[in-house]
Structure formats: C-alpha cells, structure tokens
Simulated scan of single mutants.
Amino acid sequence: MSTPHRVKVSLPEANSRGYEVLVGSGLFASLATALSRFCPAHRYAVVTDDRVAELYAVRLSRMLHSAGHRTDVFAFTSGEAQKTRETWSLVSDAMMESGCGRDTAVIAFGGGVPGDLGGFVAATYMRGLPLVQVPTTLLAMIDASVGGKTGVDTPAGKNLVGAFHQPQCVLIDPEMLQTLPDAHLRSGMAEAVKHGAIADAEYLDWIEDNVESLLAADPQALSRLIMRSVEIKAEIVASDVMECGPRKLLNFGHTIGHAVETLSGYALLHGEAVAVGMVEEARIGERAGVTAAGTSARLRRVLTRLGLPTSLPIDFGADAVVQHTRLDKKARAGRVEYSLIQDFGRPFIGPAGVWGHPVADETVAEVLAGVGSRG
C-alpha cells in the first residue's frame, strides 16, 4: 500500500476535533488497522447495498473478524430509489434485532446511496453512533463522503429528510474504482467539474486537458482528481459546516439537477443530472447577468467530452422541472435560490454577502424552454 494522502477537515465546533480523509491505493486492505486508530468500537455495523456486498462483503468481514472486530453486514437493494425512510427503517430494525448497542460504530460502505443512508442510520440510531465513510464510487469519494451530509429521499424530492453527522474518518482507496462501471465513473466526474467551476479554474483546465486519461481510468490521473476535489470540498466544509453561507456554492447545478433526477425516476445517475443542471444554471446566471457570457458553452464542451448529458431530456417540460425546484431545500420565502458563479473559480455572492441568488420561476422556465439565446 502506498502512503496515504491526508486531507484534514477542520471543524469550528468547540467539541469537535475534525477528521481526516485518507486517500491511498491499497488502503482498503488495511481497513482494520485504520478503524482501530480512528474509530475503535466494540462492534461494527456495515451498511451497504447488495451490489457492493456481492463484490466486497466477504473480504471485508474476514478482514475485520481476523483483526478481532465483531462485524455485521446490513445490505439493501441498490439504487437511488431505495434511499428511503422505509429502507432506513429496515436497516435500523435489523440492527436492533441483532443487538447493536451504543458501543457500535457504523461503516457506510459503497456509493452515494449507502453513504447517505448509512450516515443517516448512524446519525439517528440510539441518538447517534460513530461513523466511518468508505466510499467505493468516484462520486462518493470526491463529494458525498466528505462533509457530514446524510439523509434519504421522499416522494417530494431528494434528501429532504436527513441530518448533519460528521464521520470519524473517510477512507478512500482508488483501486476500488476498478470494478466501477464506466457510466458511474463519468457520473462522478461531473462533481469534479463542479469543484473546478466553483473554486479552481486551473483545476477545471487540468480536467479538460486530461479527459482521455480520466476516461481510461488511469490510476495517477484518478488519484490526482480525487485528492484535489477532496481538498476543495474539505476547505469549503470547514468554512461553513451547516451550509449557511459559502457551502451553498457546492449546490451549483443541483437545484435543476435534483429536479431532473427526480423527474427521471432516478433513471439518470446523480452526476448525469448534475451535469445537465450545471449547464442550465450557468445559462440562468448568464440570463440574470451574474455569470460571464460563454460559461455555459465551456461547461457544455467539457461535460460532453466526458460523455455526460448537457440538456434536458426531450420529454421533460420546463414547467415540470420548475415545479420540482420549488420543493428544493434552497427555496426561501417562496422563491428558489440558485448557487451561481460569476466565472470559473469565482462564486457569485449577492448583496450583504448573501450566498444564493433568487431567480423568478418565469425566468427559469424561459431558459429551460430555450427562449432567447442558448449558451
């Protein structure tokens, strides 16, 4: 195993020590050692989905058992459609039936769905258990596993029920991406593009210059991508743990993206929906006069090269998308706030330092319907 790269997530709360994100090839093989150091517990409850369990559960259980750790695996059917209160209840009940107590720690093991749902189980089970995030998809590695957001979806929309619950540590092994389907690899890259767009224009340039290596899953390129995205996410989270200010910028592309993802019945992967959302929200920003002209065109070019969609599915009506945005967590006083950028690496900050820009539904609908010039 290579020496892991460490990224510290500093938290301002007086009673929090923050935590580390460890990134290193072969790190999964030393998981038991890392748990003993960062999250010692009498027992570990591994929350995962059936696909990840099929690939890794036996190996994980044997590693932990051989190190003297009592371990139980709680697997549910894979897919965003299963990230519900019903699945949360099934997992929690199964943990109760198996006798998991307050001396248990939860390992959220898998992609964004096990990460969010496992984290929510940890946040709520017996009023809170220690949590370790072990992401296995690119999207979870560079975004979902860092920052403490946990939750489940409801029929009204994504992640409308949840809690902030920071992990004790995040353990990322890029070698686990070898079993990741190409579509999911591309989906994860959408979040990396977002990080470059909101915080680091040079990083976005690097992504565009290295598209071929990234799509070929070159280990060095992927490791660099993971580490830089984790650094950006950690810095933003440290400045605003509860998403009252600058952390809102991480929602760029997600207001439209979540609406599109929900309308698709989760047929679109999260990153695919966010790719569409970024292009459309850049166009909204251009229409509102806060985003530099040409921003949406550049995003469209980069995302297209990464094999991601950049426009609404042909059978999606603009009014239906707008209707779903009204249920978004970012709505304030009946108006939807959008996280926008001025230019690449330059966030838009409104008057009096307000993060988020309210845009009239009518304007959003016109942009989505293609009324006026297109970026």
Results as ranks from 00 to 15, higher is better:
50 D>S: 15
158 K>N: 10
270 H>R: 09
142 I>T: 13
35 L>K: 10
209 D>R: 15
370 G>E: 02
176 M>I: 10
198 I>G: 11
278 M>C: 00
351 P>V: 05
262 T>E: 01
345 G>S: 12
152 V>G: 09
260 V>L: 06
195 H>A: 02
193 V>L: 06
23 V>E: 00
311 S>G: 10
266 Y>F: 15
323 Q>W: 11
315 D>W: 08
170 V>G: 11
306 L>R: 13
204 L>N: 14
337 E>P: 00
197 A>I: 05
303 L>M: 06
67 A>R: 09
149 K>V: 00
58 V>M: 12
295 T>V: 00
77 T>M: 00
112 G>H: 08
131 L>T: 13
291 T>F: 12
195 H>F: 05
11 L>C: 14
70 R>W: 02
170 V>Y: 03
333 A>L: 14
371 V>L: 07
75 A>S: 15
173 D>I: 01
58 V>N: 14
367 V>D: 01
353 G>A: 05
23 V>Y: 03
44 Y>F: 04
121 V>E: 07
259 A>G: 12
248 K>Q: 02
84 T>D: 05
292 A>M: 12
336 V>I: 13
351 P>G: 07
51 R>H: 04
347 P>C: 12
327 L>K: 11
156 A>Q: 10
228 R>S: 02
237 V>F: 11
129 L>W: 07
88 W>V: 08
9 V>I: 14
183 A>C: 12
358 P>M: 12
172 I>Q: 02
150 T>P: 05
9 V>P: 07
164 F>D: 04
186 R>L: 14
9 V>C: 12
196 G>N: 02
87 T>D: 10
173 D>W: 03
118 G>P: 05
17 R>P: 04
94 A>G: 15
220 Q>S: 05
143 D>T: 00
165 H>W: 14
146 V>G: 03
66 S>D: 15
17 R>G: 15
169 C>F: 02
246 P>L: 10
107 I>E: 08
98 S>G: 02
175 E>I: 03
15 N>M: 07
22 L>C: 11
330 K>G: 02
92 S>T: 15
312 L>V: 09
346 R>V: 15
95 M>C: 07
178 Q>A: 13
245 G>Q: 01
237 V>T: 08
110 G>I: 11
191 E>Q: 13
235 E>G: 14
274 V>L: 08
111 G>H: 11
256 I>S: 13
71 T>N: 11
244 C>Y: 04
359 V>F: 01
66 S>K: 12
31 L>G: 01
